[in-house]
Design a protein around this nucleic acid. Structure first.
Lengths: 331, 331
DNA sequence: TTGTATGCGTTATCAT
DNA sequence: ATGATAACGCATACAA
């Protein structure tokens, strides 16, 4: 690989001059510029990003840390950020915090050590104060789907509780009273919030929650299948289900299909949805939409603004939105 | 940020010594080692990956180049490679070749400039000879889902034509004769191959292809919807459909749902499938499985072997496999 | 307008 | 067992 030195020699100038034409900085005579260009051409010269980063401590990359890679949700998240960043000409470095405070911090450190120009954090286990500490450093970052006090201008947030409440209230309005809940692992913040929505909606109708109506499961297809099965065993006469994730909903449908249960005739269902899995099912299921895609894109945009040194960025607010389809009937 | 120099000074040794304890190379007295460690601790020292890369021309990252980020397929591909690489402690750098020979080559150059230790290429537009040229360089790489002559030991391949043939023959065996084909963009290699499978299967039954039975569409949901609509307009009395991608199948189902078309009563369908979208549909649709996930993982493993300097790696062969479910009826 | 010299944080080759 | 020192490829402050 030809280096800047080779180009300089061939063009009969100094390295500094080559560097100048490279970055379009300073004044250079047209003649020498041409000579340098020709030399670069001839040597098929390409600057080393590594050396440049070392010299400037900026790397033209941004880091993304997530808690998992598995599943449509994270795939979509990664892809979206990736695409948005490419527009900025930035590379994306992805790292995973393995569901613990320390591993999340470690991931962040690795990324900053690599001189990422910015960070997008979808971390669930770090404390708010950790994030606030981080904000004292020089690397700009945004937090995705998490509201951090004092970091509002870098938080891309969504009100999971309200979303859940709206979903369950819809069921309530349609006359359902015996409403099951397929909940995510309650150790996870957003899962807990979504469950809160269930509780609040019920309370607003003067109904207290019956624990035998709720099952906690992993946020995936099999989890949904099992949860639905458990609930139906305990409470065969439910009329509606509130599912806290689309993949769990797909799992529930596996059971419905297996048992010949009819929707919405026998059971109504409403679900969270991010990647439109719910519109592939038959009947298409009514959802509260959790717009991870748009939020990921927004996080990329906000980060870009931050990296450009813009002040007072106002992250877009994402409001829960009901998407009514064919899986809920009136009773 | 503390550098190796700071550590050396604090520990009262030279930079070289610090470097040695860092990499566990050479012999060092226990006492000094301890002192160095303490100094590192105290300064919260972390080595700069950038400087290390510059010095060693290796970066602890691998590059992945794909043609798109959109859709479940690519998402899954990225996520799988990502996860597999993390096990090796490698970072992943993703870049996109925008469906042209030159942009794919450009992406590769950027990645090699960053001193990636290895490359995974899911490129469709470069020529075989480009790849062969590349193989003369020093960066190990593998090609995903493409068979390159003279590069068999780095090609993770799948027989799309055979897969398509098997799918259509299944339809044929069940008595179907008027079989529509929802094809991908024929400019794309694998789409063309899958279509070939259709042609071959038909020929083996002495049937010549009727172009009005086939529609070419984008490899996505909307494409499938439109293609299905077009075909039904021209040929309302088809009995079966061969769909070349799962997302197109989802789109076809959108139309079926809209029109109240019954499966497999009115129409039978068989589809390619990679991300199990087809098992979410009702009825679950019979498929030929294109195991992109496993192939992505295999590509990561083969690359790892290559990077470790192993010779004679034999990439696993992936054989098309029919997964019969409930979307095809006998007539 | 251009050149010189130094620094960025490592590794690696010689010495000692 | 340890230290000096030269790379690695670029940017940049200071001279000229």
């Amino acid at each position: 690989m030809a280096s800047i030195k080779d180009v300089a020699e061939l063009a009969g100038v100094s390295k500094a001059t080559v560097s100048r034409v490279l970055n379009n900085t300073g004044q250079i005579r047209e003649g020498t510029r041409a000579r340098v260009h020709k030399a670069m051409e001839k040597l098929n010269y390409r600057p080393s990003p590594l050396a440049k980063s070392l010299a400037t401590s900026s790397s033209n990359t941004v880091g993304l840390v997530v808690t998992s890679y598995r599943g449509h949700f994270y795939s979509e998240l990664m892809a979206e950020v990736q695409e948005e960043m490419e527009v900025q000409g930035k590379f994306l470095l992805v790292s995973r915090g393995k569901r613990s405070r320390s591993s999340e911090q470690e991931a962040i450190q690795r990324l900053t050590d690599m001189c990422c120009d910015g960070l997008i954090l979808h971390t669930r286990n770090m404390f708010d104060e950790d994030l606030v500490d981080l904000s004292k450093g020089s690397t700009p970052f945004v937090v995705l789907d998490r509201s951090v006090k004092d970091l509002e201008d870098r938080s891309i947030v969504y009100d999971h509780t309200l979303a859940g409440k709206m979903a369950v209230e819809h069921l309530l309005e349609k006359g359902h009273r015996k409403i099951a809940c397929i909940a995510g692992p309650r150790s996870r913040m957003t899962a807990a919030l979504r469950f809160d929505g269930y509780v609040q909606a019920l309370e607003s109708y003067g109904i207290s929650v019956d624990e035998s109506l709720v099952a906690e499961a992993d946020y995936d297809r099999l989890g949904g299948y099992r949860a639905m099965k458990d609930i139906l065993e305990r409470q065969p006469d439910i009329t509606a289900v509130y599912s806290c994730s689309e993949e769990m909903t797909v799992g529930a449908f596996d059971l419905f299909r297996e048992r010949g249960i009819n929707l919405p005739g026998d059971i109504s269902i409403i679900s969270f949805d991010s990647v439109s899995l719910c519109t592939m099912l038959t009947p298409q299921v009514s959802t509260v939409h959790f717009p991870i895609k748009e939020m990921a894109a927004e996080s990329a945009r906000v980060l870009t603004a931050l990296m450009h040194g813009e002040q007072d960025v106002q992250p877009q607010r994402f409001i829960p939105e009901l998407r009514l389809r064919d899986s809920v009937r009136e009773i």
